[in-house]
Amino acid sequence: MLTIRPATRGDLAALDALLARSYPRLLKADYPPSVLVTALPLISRANPALLGTGTYFVAEDATGTLLGAGGWTRGRPAPGQARQRRGNVRHVVTDDRTLRQGIGRAIMERTFDSARAAGATCLHCLSTRTAQPFYAALGFTPLGETEISLAPGIGFPAIAMLKELTPGGAFPGRSRKTMT
């Protein structure tokens, strides 16, 4: 049984371990070693500010093992949008040993529901090259390549993507699955 719940500060160590184990394996095929050697130490750590926000979620199995995480926060407005109407997808990860089992999709469904309930009308995402097909399957549209500034002199190539949230909508062409 998979449980999706809001993250707490108590999840920090398990989330750090998940990110440190999964990101190097997941990103290896799509990024050169020269990028990964500088980026991985910075992106493979949980952001404590996200934990306890109520909009960042973890997925765990019946034993309490973390299998994934992700969520959203309010974002800067795009031109012509009110501040409170746009959200940003934040630090999504799935255990590399449990890919294609619906864990990432379940986390994102919870994220969409949470964002809609808070009045967001769209979600912006800075996707890795690896995750772009995943986000596209969830209805995100690519806006173009970008670079995330991780630290002075350290950039990480990404793809900016956007998803319009429809009231009560789930995923294109799919029925909603119930997750606890």
Rank of each mutant, 00 (worst) to 15 (best):
D11K: 12
L138R: 01
L150P: 05
L126E: 15
T178F: 07
R90L: 00
L42Q: 01
I103T: 01
L2Y: 13
F134V: 05
S114K: 03
S175K: 14
L18I: 03
L36A: 01
A106V: 09
T65N: 07
L42G: 02
T65V: 06
R116K: 14
G70S: 10
L67P: 10
I43W: 00
A160D: 13
Q132V: 12
L40V: 02
L150R: 08
P152W: 00
L66P: 11
S44Y: 00
G155K: 06
F156K: 03
Y23D: 01
F171G: 04
R97H: 12
L123N: 09
F57E: 06
K163E: 05
G52V: 11
F134I: 11
V92R: 00
P172A: 12
T180Y: 07
A29D: 14
F112G: 00
V93A: 15
R76P: 13
Q132M: 11
N47R: 11
S149H: 08
G168W: 12
N88C: 08
T73A: 15
P32R: 03
R21C: 09
I4E: 00
A59L: 02
A120L: 14
G80T: 09
P6M: 06
G70A: 09
R86N: 10
I4Y: 00
L66K: 09
L12E: 14
E164Q: 14
G54T: 02
Q101A: 12
G169R: 01
A13W: 08
L18N: 04
A49E: 15
A118Y: 05
Y23M: 12
N88Y: 07
G153Y: 02
S127K: 02
A69L: 11
G64V: 04
L27R: 03
M161P: 01
A137S: 15
T180H: 11
L27I: 05
P77H: 08
V35I: 15
P77G: 10
A120V: 13
F112K: 00
I43F: 00
P79N: 00
K28M: 09
Q81I: 07
H124S: 12
L123R: 02
L2R: 13
V92S: 03
I154W: 02
L99K: 10
L50D: 10
D30E: 06
P152K: 02
A20C: 08
R86H: 03
G173H: 13
Q81R: 14
F112D: 00
H124C: 09
P152H: 04
P142C: 04
P142T: 11
T141N: 01
A82L: 12
L50A: 05
R9N: 11
P133S: 00
L2Q: 03
G119N: 06
T180A: 15
G153F: 08
A49M: 09
